[in-house]
Amino acid sequence: MGTHAPCRILVVEDDCDVLDAIAETLREDGHEVTTAENGAQALAALGSDPLPHVILLDLMMPVMNGTEFLRAQRQDPRLASIPVVILSGDGAMPSKAQALGIDDFLTKPIRGSALLQRVARYC
């Protein structure tokens, strides 16, 4: 168990192995985790309360990708203020993050310690 307040986290990632690894790492640290495999599932998961403290979002996903999800999330006043951390496989993320209006991201491969530290910022 972590030494901090537990956090509600929504993880959106299409690679099931990565999704499981992230979710298990977070749960072992005492967090409450909801998972979604694409943007559409994520929006559905956000339909009911309570809302998460933070969303971890992959960008390259089928059905509804991360960029489309971000647009929809920002247009919804109920969801717009939930902080989003991008999970990126792109080494050139710092420049892209700016274009997306996102200032927080984790570059894959993600270290367990980095993941937990980042999430703790939003609890």
Partner: peptide, 25 residues
């Protein structure tokens, strides 16, 4: 860039589970 993206996913899984083992709860 696609290959790099594709390789990063399994590496993330590997790394996260390794880190979980390392924490040896």
């Amino acid at each position: 860039s696609l290959v790099s993206h594709e390789l990063r996913s399994p590496l993330t899984t590997l790394q996260l589970h390794l880190d979980r083992l390392h924490r040896d709860q």
